Amino acid sequence: MISQETIEGFLDRLASGQPTPGGGAAAALQAAQGAALLSKAASFTTGPRFAEHEAAARRLAAKARDLIPQALALADDDEQAFDRVATAYRLPKDSEAERTARSGAVQDALREAVRPPKKLIMLTKTLLGLGEELAGFANPDLRSDLAAGLEAIRAAAAGARAILAADRKDITDSGIADTLQVPASNAADIAEACARLSEQLRMQIRAAHR
Rank of each mutant, 00 (worst) to 15 (best):
M1K: 09
F50L: 05
I163Q: 13
K119R: 12
R143M: 04
I163P: 09
T100D: 14
L128K: 06
Q200M: 08
K169W: 01
I121Q: 01
I190Y: 05
L72F: 02
T172H: 06
A88E: 11
Q181H: 08
G23T: 13
Q181E: 13
G149V: 11
Q18A: 09
L29S: 08
Q70N: 15
I176L: 10
G175W: 03
D83A: 09
A56P: 01
E54M: 04
A64H: 12
R115G: 01
G17P: 00
D78Y: 03
D108I: 04
A25V: 00
L128V: 07
T87V: 02
N186G: 07
E5N: 05
H53Q: 14
G47T: 00
D141T: 04
A28W: 03
A25E: 00
Q30G: 03
I7L: 14
D78V: 01
V114M: 12
E96Y: 06
G47D: 05
G47W: 00
A155Q: 06
P117N: 13
D167W: 04
R210H: 15
L91K: 14
L74R: 03
M203W: 03
L201G: 11
R210L: 11
G175N: 07
R143D: 04
I2N: 13
L60W: 08
T20P: 06
I163E: 13
Q80T: 09
A166P: 07
A135V: 03
A32C: 02
L142P: 02
A162I: 02
L150F: 11
A57Y: 05
R102N: 10
F82H: 06
F50Y: 15
A36G: 13
P48T: 01
I190D: 06
R143P: 01
R65H: 14
E151V: 01
R196N: 08
A177G: 08
A162Y: 09
D167S: 13
H53I: 00
L74I: 01
G136R: 05
E151Y: 12
G23C: 08
K125W: 10
E133D: 15
Q70P: 01
A41T: 07
V182M: 06
F137H: 11
I171E: 06
A162V: 07
Q204N: 12
A113F: 12
D77E: 15
R210T: 10
A62W: 07
Q204M: 13
A208N: 10
V85P: 10
A35N: 07
L14N: 12
A61W: 04
A26W: 02
Q200E: 14
T100E: 15
A32P: 07
S103G: 11
R59H: 13
A25D: 00
A166D: 13
L67I: 12
N139M: 00
G129N: 03
A138W: 00
V106M: 09
S16P: 02
A155S: 13
P183C: 08
R161H: 14
G24R: 02
F137D: 06
G23S: 11
A187D: 06
L67A: 14
A208T: 08
A97I: 10
R90V: 00
A193Q: 14
A51G: 01
G23E: 11
R210Q: 09
L127Q: 13
C194F: 05
A97R: 15
D77A: 15
G34D: 10
L38S: 11
R59D: 15
T172R: 10
E54P: 04
G131C: 04
Q181T: 14
F44T: 11
N186Q: 14
S43Q: 14
D66V: 00
